[in-house]
Computed example of a mutant assay.
Amino acid sequence: MSSIDVSIVNNVVAVMIDNRYSGFSDIPKELNGCDESVFIEAVSDSIKAAVTDAKEKMRPKNGETYYVPHPFSKSMYSSQEWAGDSIDRRVEERGLMFKTKEEAIEAAKKMLEVVK
């Protein structure tokens, strides 16, 4: 992950990861007006839950296709089916997994710009 944006509106925590994946979690309303440290802990827990929600949306389901930038190929991308193996997890950890081929192509173009 390169960036996480957090907002809280009306007791709902919203996070946006890498400007692509969003997650949400409620802060229990009964905590309004309670001890400050209890409320802060509840907000922290809600942020963690919202990040988890967003991360779950990022990862493909078994057999689902994802796209990887390949700046050296003619198409500038390749597609893979998620199996959850070490290669899939490495691609995910390195931020090279995309839901669309257009996103993978854009990433490949950015890679080429770095080396020019």
Rank of each mutant, 00 (worst) to 15 (best):
N10T: 01
N10W: 02
N11H: 13
N11P: 00
V12D: 05
V12W: 04
V12I: 15
V13P: 06
A14G: 00
V15G: 07
M16V: 11
N19K: 13
N19S: 14
N19F: 05
R20T: 12
Y21P: 00
Y21N: 07
Y21R: 04
Y21E: 06
S22I: 08
G23L: 05
G23A: 07
G23M: 07
G23T: 05
G23I: 03
G23N: 06
F24Y: 15
F24H: 11
S25Q: 09
S25V: 05
D26K: 13
D26S: 13
D26R: 12
D26V: 10
I27Q: 03
P28Q: 10
P28A: 11
P28M: 07
K29W: 05
K29A: 12
E30A: 00
N32H: 03
G33I: 10
C34R: 11
C34Q: 09
D35G: 01
E36M: 08
E36C: 02
S37A: 10
S37I: 07
V38I: 15
E41T: 11
E41Y: 05
E41I: 01
E41H: 07
A42S: 14
V43M: 15
V43Q: 14
V43L: 13
V43F: 08
V43Y: 08
S44N: 14
S44E: 14
S44T: 15
S46C: 07
I47A: 02
I47Y: 04
A49T: 10
A50N: 03
V51Y: 04
V51P: 01
V51K: 07
T52L: 14
T52R: 12
D53Q: 06
D53I: 04
A54T: 02
K55M: 13
K55R: 14
K55H: 07
K55N: 09
K57T: 07
K57Q: 12
R59F: 06
R59E: 07
P60L: 06
P60A: 03
K61D: 11
K61M: 11
N62S: 10
N62L: 13
G63H: 04
G63K: 04
G63M: 02
G63N: 02
E64W: 10
E64P: 05
Y67L: 05
V68R: 02
P69E: 04
H70I: 12
P71A: 06
F72W: 10
S73I: 01
K74L: 10
S75Y: 04
Y77V: 03
Y77D: 06
S78F: 05
S78T: 13
E81Q: 14
E81L: 07
W82V: 02
A83E: 11
A83S: 13
G84S: 05
G84V: 05
S86H: 10
I87M: 10
I87S: 09
I87V: 12
R90A: 14
V91E: 03
V91F: 06
E92N: 03
E93A: 12
E93Q: 09
E93D: 11
R94V: 00
R94E: 13
R94P: 00
